[in-house]
Write a protein that binds this DNA or RNA. Sequence first.
DNA 1: AATTAAATTGCAATCGATTGCGGATATAAT
DNA 2: ATTATATCCGCAATCGATTGCAATTTAATT
Lengths: 341, 341
Amino acid sequence: MEKQGETTIHDIAKKLNIAASTVSRALNNNPIISEPTRKLIEKTAKEMGYRPNIMAANLRTKKTNTIGVVVPLINRHFFSSVISGVEEVAYNRGFAVTISQSNDNFEKEEKIAQTLFSNRVDGLIVSIGMQTKTFDHLRLFSERKVPLVFFDRVVDEIEADKIVVDDYRGGFKATEHLIEQGGSIIAHIGGPLNVKIYQDRLAGFKDAMKKAGLPVDESMLIHNSLTRADGTNAIKKLLQNKIKPDAIFCANDTSALSVIIYLRQMEIKVPDDILIVGFSNEPFSEVVTPSISTIRQPGFEMGKKAADLLIRQIKLKEKSNRFQTFVMPTELIVRESSVRK
Amino acid sequence: MEKQGETTIHDIAKKLNIAASTVSRALNNNPIISEPTRKLIEKTAKEMGYRPNIMAANLRTKKTNTIGVVVPLINRHFFSSVISGVEEVAYNRGFAVTISQSNDNFEKEEKIAQTLFSNRVDGLIVSIGMQTKTFDHLRLFSERKVPLVFFDRVVDEIEADKIVVDDYRGGFKATEHLIEQGGSIIAHIGGPLNVKIYQDRLAGFKDAMKKAGLPVDESMLIHNSLTRADGTNAIKKLLQNKIKPDAIFCANDTSALSVIIYLRQMEIKVPDDILIVGFSNEPFSEVVTPSISTIRQPGFEMGKKAADLLIRQIKLKEKSNRFQTFVMPTELIVRESSVRK
DNA sequence: AATTAAATTGCAATCGATTGCGGATATAAT
DNA sequence: ATTATATCCGCAATCGATTGCAATTTAATT
């Protein structure tokens, strides 16, 4: 005999001639309920196919047990790895994960933030888009005390927990490595400078150059959105310089790949003629020929850490702890593209 | 003056000396409310910083405006592309997307299904895990009339909308291509046969062989989980056969990659000595050397289609339309790994 | 001016679970 | 037998929005 609707705690209560409140407490393992009645309630709940109505509970408790994640692009190895890490931790601690992608579009990012806020997510994990230069849509969360964690592309202007990779040292190590391998006229293909990670990678690049006593010529610096097409355009432009680079530090693997493919077409040898280092350790960087030296970013671990921090904030709540910034170590992975045989 | 809590429709109603119901209707653009009062209500709502409490609305309407997506692994290009497509459509139609990964683990898939069901998602989009051989956890949805759409790794035993790629023709085309290129002793590295897509790819393989009058030797068929390690083991085993294959159809690009890398180490030339075709068109397959011929699966489009179908079901509800299966066309992408120069 | 129809708005119940507080029962102590 | 002390449990309000139905106001008609 199927009931017409879902069974509620009231149905269970009625069946057992007890109060709904008792049922509720029993099902929530409230120790105030005696063992035998709890057992009984659990048993009949199962028999009746009871499933708690989470919306009702949420309404009452003002919690959704949901955390929101906003990334520029899901379909991108680094971000999907982070999401994977977030999901793993969240799932194990009883949180659902709602995911949205901004497509690096500011308006969409704003709308997503509004929506997630209205949906009362218990907390938010964000990596901002490349166009994002104002932050009111995110301040909304921090001001209303909704826990917020930034990762990778963080926002300096907002106080919150942050998880970044050591982009500065990554840029530094990459450049230093190129210098060690014999590069002296070194170009940098970087991302938009309103995004901190690209500032940092650039800073690392410059400092490594300075340390080695090498000049940084403006004509050797290019900033774009680091897509495949951008990478191709960038290398074309670099090759038009009177003095051509003998090494390039690319701020991501995608542009490094573009460069390598274009150079192959031009019959310029990598690494013999030009050394290349990328950034992020995308899966393809390992298997392309020549394989791309790059900087590893521990995406999965960052996701786990972000979720852990966020959930910690959610649980603590009131106790406004100081916000922390975690810097995940970067690792230079040396492959073929940067080592002369 | 911040109110202590959120402003509700009752607050607005009180301020304007009208009933909460009027406010509710006005905000929902119910035409029964006159234009001037609607304007007034909207204006004060904005002034007071009103944000609807979605949980309360959900509780009342029994809708969550959320759709669940379950995939084996987020961090996998094909799946993240599908998710990306789902997210795009869902977002534009006012649905949130909750994502979970099963890690190809049956128990986790079960728990996820339970959780999403309890969370009252309005519909579910699923690609089952490799271990999944029973389906009660999914029948839960179909039986309780929660819209359900399968994609890629679908379940024959459950009636629902399904979106698959034409794995049979994909397998057939891949194999036919290998034969055209001169392969005659052709091996197949496939996935577990409880998953339909792998059955179909195998069937396509066999039929293409039969059509060409070529024998299918059991020793040329290997089934595993198609990981990097599995791929390496598979090619090792194949090379131990007395008769060695001169072509291999791999059921995914990952195993094709493993094979290529192993063969390179063994100094066996691809494509000169052995032709290779993979499956899925993972990003790396284009850029590896030799680039991998493969079968394209339109992940993003599948995601969009899945979301569209699901939302259509959600909107129609009652009108139990016939369930449909959409077969997305596959496309053979010929690259270096399967073409003798 | 009276009556009717139409247009608006309000009342109050409802969705299902949670929880503070008071009441009932049982066991122990005197 | 009586009081004290836990131990359990139930009552009823509450979370905030939605909605059927009733009530009121306004406009239209005769």
